[in-house]
């Protein structure tokens, strides 16, 4: 049993084998990692722990019953259960619109032209408006006596004011105004990450504008669009203040955040509120998961650009 092959890794004669600190350092573990400690402790204590606490709390219903009583109550009560569909009915069209509308605009804006920075800034400004100001603006601008309805009546498109706030449309508009800039920015940055010479090469080979987009740009852009859709969908699915302010919070736009908030903080039934928050996260994960599975079937190689 003195075969030299089983000896510990090369330690030249006269030197001790490398210490544990040295061996760990070779795998990237050294004192620098201590810098991680505050950040990781912070996320674990203030993010992971509350989420797990909420998950655990959701299995301890206040009114007794089995561990799943809160979930049974949520899915058994149509008034609670239907909030999922109400929210999806708002979030999916809003996210789809935001992504689809940003494609042509970003496509026109990918090159360099005068005033590009100004236009980008103007398109990004709505992010700063925030949901609350947007709601206030929607009420005054799109309301029955607002300028929008006055113009519609003025040019004879309609005789009576169109009802655009305090219903489904108000919330949808608010989701578009706050979500579009975000989707646009993401799409623009994905699009500028695609090497323009690929399209030029296709043009040299005789592809017209439509076919260049269909066969070159779009397939390269699609994975980015999937991510953009996921992010805007998640934002829209958790819509909260605007559903109260420009929607019909007890009816058409009784979204899932409203019931989660009301159960937890108005009725102080924290377990039910946590259970609804978990359902909310689950629905989002399912939709995002579906989109990402679909995305994994797409081309994922280099796009050749700076991105």
């Amino acid at each position: 049993m003195t075969a030299p092959t089983t000896a510990p890794p090369v330690s030249p004669p006269g030197e001790r084998p490398p210490g544990i600190a040295h061996r760990l350092a070779e795998r990237g573990i050294d004192r620098v990692l201590l810098l991680l400690v505050p950040g990781v402790v912070f996320v674990v204590v203030l993010f992971a722990y509350p989420v797990l606490y909420g998950l655990q709390l959701s299995f301890q219903p206040e009114e007794g019953g089995g561990p799943f009583a809160n979930y049974e109550r949520f899915f058994g009560d149509p008034y609670l259960r239907d909030t999922i569909w109400i929210t999806l009915r708002l979030a999916v069209p809003a996210a789809l619109f935001n992504v689809l509308a940003s494609i042509p605009i970003a496509y026109r804006m990918r090159g360099a032209f005068r005033g590009k920075r100004v236009l980008t800034t103007i398109l990004v400004v709505p992010i700063t408006l925030g949901t609350v100001l947007t709601a206030q603006g929607l009420i005054s601008y799109l309301g029955p006596a607002g300028w929008f309805n006055k113009i519609l009546i003025g040019i004879g498109l309609t005789d009576e004011p169109v009802r655009l706030v305090n219903n489904y449309w108000g919330v949808l508009f608010s989701l578009i105004i706050t979500g579009f800039p975000f989707a646009f920015l993401l799409t623009l940055s994905y699009l500028s990450g695609i090497d323009p010479t690929l399209e030029q090469a296709a043009a040299t080979l005789g592809a017209d504008r439509r076919r260049r987009f269909r066969h070159i740009t779009f397939p390269l852009l699609a994975p980015g669009l999937a991510i953009t859709f996921c992010l805007t969908f998640v934002l829209a699915f958790s819509v909260f203040p605007s559903a109260y302010l420009v929607g019909l919070p007890q009816g058409e736009t009784r979204v899932i955040s409203i019931v989660a908030y009301e159960s937890a903080f108005r009725d102080t039934d924290y377990p039910l509120g946590s259970a609804i928050a978990m359902v909310m996260a689950l629905v989002m994960l399912v939709v995002v998961g579906l989109v990402l599975v679909w995305r994994s079937t797409m081309y994922r190689g280099a796009t050749g650009g700076k991105g």
């Binding site: 992971a48 509350p50 998640v234 928050a277």
Partner: peptide, 20 residues
């Protein structure tokens, strides 16, 4: 672990966080 709090909307983790 650092991506999740950015990707998840504040409403989902906000309710358990406020409870804690």
């Amino acid at each position: 672990l650092f991506l999740l709090p950015i990707l998840l909307p504040p409403m989902t983790y906000g309710i358990p966080l406020a409870t804690v």
